[in-house]
Amino acid sequence: MNLPAEAFLTSSGIVALAEIGDKTQLLAFMLAARFRRPWPIAAGILIATIANHAFAGAVGTWITTLLGPDLLRWVLGASFLAMAAWILVPDKLDDDDLATPKLGVLATTIVAFFLAEMGDKTQIATVALAAQYGAFAAVVAGTTFGMMVANVPAVVAGDRFANRLPVRLIHGIAAALFAVLGIAALAGFGGG
């Protein structure tokens, strides 16, 4: 498999799994319940995610210019292993995450999602994946696709199916994938 395809597929899968039960997915459920207009909410999630993950991907790409290959390998390995542990910590949604001025459905979603994603697991993962693969466009496209895979069904279906998802199992799988990436980075395999 070529590097951009691997970067896209890995980024998509990890973010889609990591997003299950994440605070931004909880935000998607809340927005759906509050506004009951799934398509402007989905569009807002897409716009906010592209902006946020493009910034995160740029930071990840920039980091590769600052660190030598050996130091980068250790930083990425440690980062992925930390993400493996962090993904197992359940998220909670703060009241502030939905407290936005009356902007309309699309603008409220963009603002709320962009702010909720700042410093979130998937944003940090995007930084690390962009640094790991050195494939900015493929990683940003992949993490954005993963966010949409996890959140659009949440918006469309509402919280009817939220309680049926095996969140702990899904987070365990995501943690295992992050751990594999961490071990591979430390061992010097994969990526750019």
Rank of each mutant, 00 (worst) to 15 (best):
A187H: 10
F178H: 07
G158I: 02
P40Y: 04
V75D: 05
G192S: 12
A18E: 04
I87G: 00
W74N: 12
L169S: 11
Q132T: 08
G21D: 00
V105A: 01
L76N: 05
N52T: 08
G182F: 03
V111T: 12
T65F: 10
M30N: 10
P4G: 03
F8W: 09
F178V: 03
F145V: 14
A82M: 13
N163S: 13
M118W: 13
I173L: 10
A112W: 04
V105N: 02
A131W: 02
A162Y: 14
L76C: 08
L165K: 07
P40E: 03
A16F: 02
P101Y: 10
D96I: 13
L46M: 13
T49P: 03
R164Y: 12
D94F: 10
Y133K: 09
I110F: 12
G57Q: 06
A128F: 12
A58H: 11
M83P: 03
A135L: 08
T49R: 05
L67G: 09
G158K: 06
I47T: 11
D91H: 09
R168D: 01
A99W: 07
V156I: 15
T64P: 10
F189H: 15
L31N: 03
A112V: 05
P40R: 04
V167D: 01
A18W: 02
I41V: 15
A78E: 07
F136T: 03
M1S: 11
L71S: 13
G13V: 04
A130F: 08
A51W: 06
A141T: 04
E19W: 06
A116C: 15
V59Y: 09
P153V: 00
A174Y: 00
I63A: 13
A112F: 07
S11E: 00
E19H: 06
G188N: 09
A82Y: 13
T65S: 14
W74K: 12
V155C: 09
L181F: 10
I170S: 04
M148W: 00
A125W: 02
A42I: 00
D159H: 11
A54R: 08
R164E: 07
A16P: 10
W39I: 06
E117L: 11
A174H: 01
T61V: 11
A18M: 09
A107P: 08
A128I: 01
L93K: 08
D96P: 06
A179E: 02
L186T: 07
A112M: 11
L3K: 10
A179F: 04
G191L: 05
F80W: 07
R160E: 09
I45A: 05
I183S: 06
T10A: 10
V167Y: 05
L93F: 06
F178A: 00
N151D: 04
L27G: 01
R160A: 11
R73Q: 15
